[in-house]
Amino acid sequence: MSRLVAGTLLVGLAVAPAAGQDRRAEVLRERAAYEEWLATSPVSPRRAIARPVLGDGLTLGPGDADVPLAGLSLAQLEEVGGTVRLRHEGTTRVLPRGRETALGAYRLVPLGRAGRTVVAIYGGALRGKAPSWYDYDPRLVLEATLEPPAQPGRVRVGTVDGLEAEATEAGTFAGALAGTGFRFTVRRVPADAEDAELEIHFRDATNGLGTYDAGRFVALEPLGNGRYRLDFNRARNPFCAYSSAFPCPAPWRGNAVTLPITAGERYAGGGLVVPAPGARE
């Protein structure tokens, strides 16, 4: 009996550090995959050339095209009944939304809803800087039950990748760091999609002083039974931080803490140095 009790206690003590190590390893794997994608993907934000609105149609290629693309003969894009068509060198192709299509040395990705399509165009060498990160900090991993939103409903927000999306007010995540409480608005982006992330666009005292000036994004992890994990080690910059081809999403009201959250992605370059929330001259 006593051996059983002792064994149970040992297991109980051992589980927490092991879980922490697993968590750290998972976050580091996720970062590595993201870095690899940014460095190698033909549709990496670091290869973004432009994101024109499709509107009544676009021409690509020659110098007098809407979007000049070196080495490409004339290509024409148009939207017919919500379908994006590409005409190039005598053939017509349908471009699937949200997926990349090769066109010469370039890649095209139609995004957004029918009638409001933008076409993301990628190509060329990597531009800008690779991401850098704070060391993983297990103290900046919180869990809580999501509270109902103060004002339920929909709101249009700028997304990480510079699109405009309708989001659902998903609730409030209340937590505390170093004895200081905070309440973050949580939104499902885009609205209604069960596989959409529950996102928080937050600002903290590191903004402009080592992290992206206009705040970072972090997605909550549902744990079941209404519980959620907020792991600041997974915080990332919007794509606007990598390339000016992406519009900068506007931060959300109220989602600021006066503490420095030294976790997640860092930032160097672009914009002016902006004082952190709560900072005074």
Partner: peptide, 9 residues
């Protein structure tokens, strides 16, 4: 916004 790199462009 002065915080927005694309605005600087």
């Amino acid at each position: 916004g002065t915080w927005c790199p694309t605005c600087h462009d």
